[in-house]
Amino acid sequence: MKKIATILGARPQFIKAGTVSRAISENSRFQEEIIHTGQHFDANMSDIFFVEMDIPRPHRHLGINGSSHGKMTGEMISSIESVLMESKPDCVLLYGDTNSTLAGAIAASKMHIPIAHVEAGLRSFNMSMPEEINRIITDRVSELLFCPTETAVTNLKNEGILNSCGVLENVGDVMFDGALYYREKATAPVGLDNVSDFVLATIHRAENTDSPELLEQIVSQLNELSEQVEIILPLHPRTKSKLESYNFPLSERIKVIAPVGYLNMVWLIDNCKLVVTDSGGLQKEAYFFKKPCITMRPETEWVELVECGANKLFNPLVDNLNATYHQMLKFDDFSHLFYGNGDAAQRIVSKLEAFLNK
């Protein structure tokens, strides 16, 4: 039996990993140990979270959080190394681009343990983003690169990684697997059961919230748009704090709600008419549920969505949200299967089995 050590640190990673973990559990040739670094302490990740999401609970909790990027990553590397020395896995499985991903990659590579990276090859080409650094380093030391799109495969080939890895393949996106799985489990946030015909908005990235000029324009344009259509805004704590400190009031016509869990968010995406966001994952999830998206960022990892017209990059200092909203409502071609057929997890497990049994 082959042992896989899965290293996770943030709630979105658990959701991604849950899809693959369910597929691993169906294969008697694998044993999986889930290691939670504790990077994002989340009070919502109680026992009920794992039951509702049908996600395996972590086997080990490292409890590392609340410090700078460097200190936190260094502590994670040391703790992960100790766990791997004791556990002796045949492979380390990593997801995405968090500090936990980077720490797992460094620890495993120093111990010459094969690394499999899910969501390999994503690039924003913005080196000021910590996530971009984490992605590039993790891809460089991984032997199995599981890409979510053909664009990601092309990025890695352009970087010359093809000659240094064991597996480089577009397996599809595990988040698409998850969206299909959780759609039937999704529920409306409290008090929103009867809402319809609304825009879902989320703003949380530091690039937007830490700039008074950008945030003021975002708020002003959302307020103006709310005169035409209902907007539901799950308000991130960072954004809430910045709005209060800058004294930028949101219109009373915007329905502000507390941050929601994944099942509530799936319901909001599935039932909205359009998404306005600066989130990376939400751009893609909008496409899963056939909703046009306006992204308040200068670049995106999901370039195929911009190229096909499903996603529009938006500069609040230059562009007009009302005009862009009406333009994007006309988009209705969601026929491209950019993210696979919903079988990414099974394909990953098959590739892992073939690699580890060579």
Rank of each mutant, 00 (worst) to 15 (best):
T295E: 09
H204T: 09
S67P: 00
T73C: 10
E213Y: 06
R29D: 15
T19Q: 11
G309N: 13
D42E: 07
V219L: 04
S124F: 00
A17R: 04
A10S: 11
E143R: 13
W267K: 02
N315D: 15
F14L: 06
P56S: 05
I80D: 11
C91V: 03
V118S: 03
T277W: 06
C272A: 13
F41Q: 15
L200R: 10
D319I: 02
G280K: 03
L329F: 03
V199N: 05
M45W: 02
Q39L: 07
N134V: 01
M111S: 07
C293F: 03
A354L: 12
G191N: 11
N155H: 15
L200M: 14
T101D: 08
Y95L: 01
D97T: 03
L93K: 02
A179Q: 07
G166W: 13
E169Q: 14
Y246L: 10
K358R: 12
V83E: 15
D54W: 00
R29S: 15
P58V: 05
D139N: 13
V153R: 06
P148G: 09
H61K: 07
L268P: 01
P148V: 04
E299Q: 12
I24R: 02
H36V: 00
T324H: 12
I254A: 12
N223Y: 01
E32H: 10
